[in-house]
C-alpha cells in the first residue's frame, strides 16, 4: 500500500474538512487520479442516470463504512482487519440493498444488480485501510464524503460524456438529432472515455500547480 504515499496526513494530525473534500473530488479523485474501481465505472456509466444512482449508493456505503471503522478502530484486531472491513462494507451494502428494494423499487429494478457489487469496490476498502482506520470519526466522515463525492462526480461525468456521444441524449432527453458515435456507449468506448477524462483531470491538476498523477496501483 506504499503507493498511497500521496494521501495527506495519514497518521499525523487530521487535515481540515475542506482539504479532505477537495482531496477526494480533485487531488485524489478515485477514478481519474487513483484509477480505482475502473471496472464498475466502465460497466455502469452508459447513461448519466445509471452513474448517478450507483454513485449515490457508493457515497452512502463509503461514508457509513468509514464512520463505522473510525468508531471501532480501537477494538478491531489488526490481524483480521481486512476481513472485518469486508464484513462492515457487506453489512452496509446489504442494508442499502434492502432499503432500495423496499422504498425505491423502480430504481432497484434498474441498478439492483450493481449495488450488490459495491462490496468488492477497491476504493471503499482502500479508504478504510489508508484513512478511517487511523483517524477519528469526524475527519473519517469527511474523507468518506469527499471520496464518495469524487466517485459520484466521476461516474456522472463519464455517464454524461458517453450518453451524449454514444446515444445523443442527456438524462434520456435527446439533445442531438442522431447517435454521433455509438462506440462510446459500448464497453470499449468506456475505457476511451475514462482515458480522455483522466487526461483532462491530469491537465487540470497540473494547471493548479499540483503533483503529477498519484498512482493507486492496479486494483479492480
Amino acid at each position: 500500500m506504499s503507493a498511497h504515499g500521496t494521501t495527506p496526513a495519514v497518521s499525523g494530525p487530521p487535515p481540515s474538512p475542506w482539504q479532505l473534500l477537495v482531496n477526494g473530488i480533485l487531488t485524489e479523485n478515485p477514478v481519474f487520479r487513483l484509477a480505482l474501481s475502473l471496472c464498475p465505472a466502465v460497466a455502469v456509466t452508459t447513461t448519466v442516470l445509471n452513474g448517478l444512482i450507483l454513485g449515490v449508493a457508493v457515497l452512502a456505503v463509503q461514508v457509513l463504512s468509514s464512520m463505522t471503522v473510525a468508531i471501532f478502530r480501537g477494538v478491531i484486531h489488526p490481524r483480521v482487519r481486512i476481513p472485518v472491513y469486508t464484513i462492515i462494507i457487506a453489512v452496509w451494502v446489504s442494508a442499502i440493498d434492502m432499503t432500495l428494494a423496499a422504498f425505491a423499487p423502480a430504481v432497484y429494478a434498474q441498478v439492483g444488480l450493481y449495488v450488490k457489487l459495491i462490496v468488492a469496490f477497491a476504493i471503499i476498502i482502500s479508504r478504510l485501510e489508508v484513512f478511517a482506520s487511523r483517524q477519528p470519526l469526524v475527519p473519517s466522515f469527511f474523507d468518506g464524503l469527499g471520496m464518495g463525492l469524487g466517485f459520484l462526480l466521476a461516474l456522472v461525468t463519464i455517464g454524461a460524456f458517453r450518453e451524449l456521444l454514444g446515444n445523443g441524449s442527456v438524462l434520456g432527453y435527446h439533445v442531438l438529432p442522431s447517435q454521433p458515435l455509438l462506440f462510446f456507449a459500448l464497453p470499449a468506448g468506456g475505457f476511451f472515455s475514462i482515458a480522455l477524462l483522466m487526461a483532462f483531470f491530469n491537465w487540470l491538476e497540473r494547471a493548479r500547480g499540483g503533483k503529477p498523477a498519484a498512482s493507486g496501483g492496479s486494483h479492480g
Partner: peptide, 19 residues
Amino acid sequence: IALNLAAVCALGGVVLGGV
C-alpha cells in the same frame, strides 16, 4: 482474533436483522 471476528459478525447480523 476469533472472538473479535465473532463479535463483528454478530453485530453485523443484528444490524441486518433490524434493517
